[in-house]
């Protein structure tokens, strides 16, 4: 399924935010000059086709009593897949990416229990093939605005 010009407009509007109104999709439809039904039908299809990862609320973990960090892992090539899969198993790991660089795996860890983080990091460090890891804590979040403008 290819994205049409309408789809791109719709996804751009959707990424801009969902309003707190009785019929938010109707509000979007009005902006796009189409019926609410068309928006609902097409969004359902786009979600099903996998273009939309998630529609919903995105919370700020810091304000909910949780704290997040980024961990970079240096790992031997032959163990890479296995280590990545083991890291994925932790529910507190929300993102896990393989990157081209000295540290091949980068994952985010969010928890409301600091002792749990220490425990998991010790476990990851002890996995076969893991050379070292860095805990890269952030204090200033200047920007988080994940929107992809489709043309």
């Amino acid at each position: 399924m290819e994205l049409t010009a309408f789809d791109k407009e719709l996804l751009n509007v959707l990424q801009g935010g969902i309003e707190f109104v009785h019929k938010p999709y109707e509000t979007m439809a009005n902006k796009l000059g189409v019926s609410e039904e068309r928006v609902l039908n097409r969004l359902t299809e786009l979600k099903k086709a996998g273009y939309v990862r998630k529609i919903g609320a995105f919370f700020n973990s810091d304000k909910l009593g949780y704290s997040g960090t980024l961990i970079a892992v240096k790992v031997m090539d032959e163990y890479l897949d296995e280590v990545a899969e083991r890291i994925n198993e932790y529910p507190e790991v929300t993102h896990n990416y393989q990157r081209r660089g000295e540290y091949a795996l980068w994952f985010t860890f969010i928890t409301d229990r600091p002792e749990r983080q220490a425990q998991v990091l010790a476990e990851v460090k002890a996995l076969p093939g893991v050379v070292s890891l860095m805990d890269l804590y952030s204090q200033k979040k200047y920007k988080i605005d994940v929107r992809f403008k489709l043309k």
Binding site: L11, Q15, G17, Y51, V52, R53, I55, F58, K63
Partner: peptide, 28 residues
């Protein structure tokens, strides 16, 4: 519900109400 969400948004507890795309699939 809508009032509470609006307050969460104002206080920064709710970062956004919206969508995230599979960016690789949409061309990035």
């Amino acid at each position: 519900l809508m009032q509470r969400l609006a307050l969460m948004k104002e206080k920064g507890v709710l970062r956004k109400m919206g969508a995230v795309l599979r960016h690789v699939d949409v061309g990035f």
